[in-house]
Design a protein around this nucleic acid. Structure first.
Lengths: 222, 222
DNA sequence: TTGTCGGCCGATCGCCGACAA
DNA sequence: TTGTCGGCGATCGGCCGACAA
């Protein structure tokens, strides 16, 4: 899974810690977010926070919903003094600028009767160059999702006044991904120049839950 | 799950042992059918057959495919002499006669474009009585599947020459159950007079596999 | 008796520009 | 610039009897 696509789907608010950096783990905060109560090793005691080292970070996406998440392995750190200034706890903006664009789906976008209204900025900076000498200008656009699956869209520039639209292929995408108005779609041109597409679901209904049983604290010899 | 519907779906070849009866369990035969190798308790040794008592028999149907199967608990029997004559190892034909009819789906039945051609015998003996004074005779038929879900079909007697057909509702049933030509459908009128419907999938592709991990031999104190 | 086919009609899908926010 | 709407043409689902096996 492309880290840039992952970050574009997660949104700009999300910063992930680097491997080797120090973080503070809050068991209670984790427990409150988890769908079921995670089991903590008794050695941890009832500490409200645990200073940890990040052993590994894996960027993942749910196979069904495409929702992105990360699996982070933590090791309790023996160094008791909480001095986080020497570590950069959050990842800096990615060095390679990858153009991305997110749009929340309108009712018309999500209606199965129609297509997708592409904001001009997205069409001109993210999509492949369109040949405006045609009338109307049309092209087929291919985009990879988080699983590597390629989706095909007909991209046309038409109407009065002129606007960019995705028509054929869009309806299929909406149905397969079960998108509804309010969900967001992310288009991104990654470092290799490939067009990618991701989704960011609206939080209505609190569908996002953390599977507590998949969480483990690395056993610390301390 | 109605035992009569279960037997109708399983077919006439399938006979199930009664609770309390003696059976011979063949570990190797079981292992060859199972998807993964079942683990046998070491106390069993390498016996090629084990004389057992039937502790319980539960008639079940797969939640996804509707395929019927049974969960049977066995207890190794201390009585070493293999004299099965006093026990009736297989269930006799069910005492209450419940009319049932099975038909293998033709290409036309499975085509999404069409309906289901009901053999006359099935329509006249299994289906609810049709009012032939109408022109054409039509009725709505309700049928319960193995999960208790009720399916609705339009049953009409029309055409020249006249024949029984299921039209509206049939296509939906075929799609939901993922039926293809070669699969069989079972109609049955159970003891309570309710119409039931089951499926018996063709064995092409050997989709039926036994989940070995769900099998256990009752620990015998012997 | 019943499996397959072509006809046909209505529903739905989805592409379109008009219009207005 | 772009969200929503009504129009409308193409496609598809599905009901029908004809016909033959």
């Amino acid at each position: 899974l492309d880290p840039q696509l992952w970050h574009a789907c997660a949104g700009a608010m999300v910063r992930m810690p680097h491997v080797g950096s120090k973080v503070i783990y809050f068991p209670q905060g984790h427990a409150e977010l988890a769908a079921s109560i995670p089991e903590f090793p008794p050695s941890l005691g009832m500490a409200c926070m645990v200073l940890c080292r990040v052993l590994s970070v894996k960027f993942l996406a749910d196979a069904e919903t495409d929702e992105v998440y990360a699996r982070i392995y933590l090791q309790p750190d023996t160094n008791r003094d909480i001095d986080l200034h020497d570590d950069s706890p959050s990842s800096p903006p990615l060095p390679e600028k990858s153009a991305s664009f997110a749009k929340t789906l309108t009712q018309s976008d999500a209606n199965n009767g129609g297509g997708f209204s592409v904001p001009r900025y997205c069409a001109e900076t993210i999509f492949p160059r369109l040949d405006y000498s045609q009338d109307p200008p049309v092209q087929i656009v291919l985009a990879k999702d988080v699983h590597g699956t390629v989706w095909k869209f007909r991209h046309i520039y038409r109407g009065t006044p002129r606007r960019h639209l995705l028509t054929t292929g869009w309806s299929n995408f909406v149905n397969q991904k079960k998108l509804v108005a309010g969900d967001a779609i992310v288009f991104l041109r990654n470092a290799s120049g490939e067009l990618c597409v991701g989704v960011r679901r609206s939080t209505r209904g609190a569908t996002t839950s953390i599977n507590a049983s998949s969480w483990h604290l690395a056993a610390a010899t301390s």
